[in-house]
């Protein structure tokens, strides 16, 4: 990372914003629709998949991460990573409690 690097301030055009809004609305409709169909184990997966996609769109475009420095991308990554540790390792404890002794 070089010091005082004046990277061009990227202005995202309203067209991109509108497209993302449309995608988010479609995603919302889709997830509501999918929730009424019984897909068994797939239901939560689809719901969370759509939610993750929507969140990614917001992060990338509304929050300009796509046009931001590597540092910002790394920061987002670090947040997701630590969140995963918290959820993953805590759940690992809960799921293995039922296994009993080894």
């Amino acid at each position: 990372m070089s010091e005082h690097q004046e990277h061009e301030h990227h202005i995202v055009s309203p067209k991109v914003y509108a497209t993302i809004l449309l995608a988010l609305l479609v995603g919302t409709a889709l997830t509501v629709w999918a929730s009424y169909i019984d897909l068994g184990i797939l239901n939560p997966i689809i719901a969370l998949g759509i939610a993750c996609t929507k969140a990614t769109l917001v992060v990338l475009f509304f929050m300009h991460v796509k046009y931001s420095s590597k540092l910002t991308k790394l920061t987002v990554g670090a947040g997701v990573f630590t969140f995963m540790i918290l959820v993953g390792m805590t759940l690992a404890d809960y799921f293995t409690r039922a296994w009993g002794r080894w």
Partner: peptide, 9 residues
């Protein structure tokens, strides 16, 4: 989705 949707079906 977590609170409202995923158990709807």
């Amino acid at each position: 989705p977590l609170l409202y949707l995923i158990s709807r079906h």
